[in-house]
């Protein structure tokens, strides 16, 4: 399929792999410093140092967000109504 050359580059299908590639490269770069940095521990006396473990903020950010999206989706089943619901 030949794409419309006037289409903004962000919207061309052919740009998509590039955009994903850039995102993944940035993610990798953000994790690399983990090899050199010692993180603070805040809750050692409460028996956990997980907040200072390797890449904690990366996986914690990903999974909590995924949980929030899924949680919102489930709540949405009960809470969502057509947007003219309150219009009499």
């Amino acid at each position: 399929m030949i794409e419309d050359p006037h289409k903004h580059w962000l919207y061309r299908r052919s740009s998509l792999p590039w955009l994903w590639g850039i995102l993944i490269a940035i993610l990798v770069i953000s994790v690399v410093p983990e090899f050199f940095i010692q993180h603070y521990t805040y809750f050692e006396d409460q028996g956990t140092t997980i907040e200072a473990s390797f890449g904690f903020h990366a996986w914690y950010g990903f999974f909590t967000c995924a949980a929030m999206v899924v949680g919102a989706k489930i709540l949405g089943v009960f809470l969502k109504r057509k947007d003219n619901y309150y219009d009499d």
Partner: peptide
């Protein structure tokens, strides 16, 4: 950076 960028990945 990690927290936010991986939240972005989740999005």
């Amino acid at each position: 950076f990690q927290l936010l960028l991986f939240a972005g990945l989740a999005f």
